[in-house]
Write a protein that binds this DNA or RNA. Sequence first.
DNA 1: TAGATTGTTAATCGATTAACAATC
DNA 2: TAGATTGTTAATCGATTAACAATC
Lengths: 216, 216
Amino acid sequence: MNMNTEIIVRLSKYKRLLQKLKALGLERVFSNNLGDGIGVSPALVRKDFSAMNIQGNKRGGYDINILIEQLNKLLGKDQPQELIIAGCGRIGTALMQYEEFSTEGLQVVAGFDINPDGVQNVQDIPIYHLNEMAAFIKENNIEVGIITVPDNAAANVLEMMIKAGVKGILNFASIELKTANSLNCNQCTIQNVNIGLELEHLFYRIKEMPPCEEKE
Amino acid sequence: MNMNTEIIVRLSKYKRLLQKLKALGLERVFSNNLGDGIGVSPALVRKDFSAMNIQGNKRGGYDINILIEQLNKLLGKDQPQELIIAGCGRIGTALMQYEEFSTEGLQVVAGFDINPDGVQNVQDIPIYHLNEMAAFIKENNIEVGIITVPDNAAANVLEMMIKAGVKGILNFASIELKTANSLNCNQCTIQNVNIGLELEHLFYRIKEMPPCEEKE
DNA sequence: TAGATTGTTAATCGATTAACAATC
DNA sequence: TAGATTGTTAATCGATTAACAATC
């Protein structure tokens, strides 16, 4: 099955929306509600669920509780999602204390840095030397890592992670990282978060923006 | 002209790649080189440039210096790109010191917080109270802002920014912000950076990953 | 000139949407 | 039953790619 990458993002969005609707006391939703909520057509909502083998009632829409449960299971939320952070600078340590992580069941189990003693311990997350990262990954079967080291160290850390068996990487270094499929096999997914790129994008778009008239 | 949003991201990527190629001493590039470098087909490279009225030589490819200059101009890099940050917590202050910004000509000119005295001054970026943000935006014609306040304050800050005239917003709060086009007109572009969503996405994809065989 | 690369047109591909039969 | 919503098929839309004429 050729899995489109956008559909997964939408699944997460449905789930988050549903949790809020549930908190408001709703018990069922229609594809229309979900479409409005995340900004897609109702047809796409139904199609997404259909692709995931999630069924509703021909007349009564979808049961919120069941839907949330099914989405959570699909997204692997039925077990703790552990990850590590390489690079305990400002961004790395900020992420360690990121509140959203705990509410979403994401758990940072360790941080790594070339100067672990210089990092003031964050909550109860242990900070180790980068040298120990590979061993830690293997021992604890870590599958996801965040890279927040300086650009010039990023490629190196990437290779360390992949060789140690990490399968998913979120990269904050401003150089785009790719899997050189020479290492290991190409069984590692890398997601680049490039803040500078996002800003450049914004600056471009506002430049194009006409003063204030109707659209198109 | 209906401007696809992905093309702009590619323009930034071309530009960054070109700067590195230039540093290596190259003087001309072919659509093939650029395609390989950012992972698209050479046809798309030529199409992008064509859409932007950038011309090459039928035989000699593109002159790197001229190309960089043209891309920079398109991306508005010929003038300083100023922005503000609302929310001077860990992520906000981390971004203020983000090295990539200075190398890319992005300049954080002020930070705002509900407790500016609690923020230790970052380099030479002034920190003011959130109450002063609207006035600052207007006085200095600020067009781009980053939101790094807690989720429960995000919608509020968004509205303040839009009303004061900000046209582009990069939002790090974990609730997705949209332009309620009731305020003002809908002339504000919002880009959401949702780290939790990215991680959920990663966790999903690695779950689907088969042990280790050829692709497809 | 011959060879190579651009610029562009037509073909392809995939994702989204419209529409409707099935059915609760 | 009548009405409303799902699940799915066919139509649309847009972006990417293949291919090739133009041309340096």
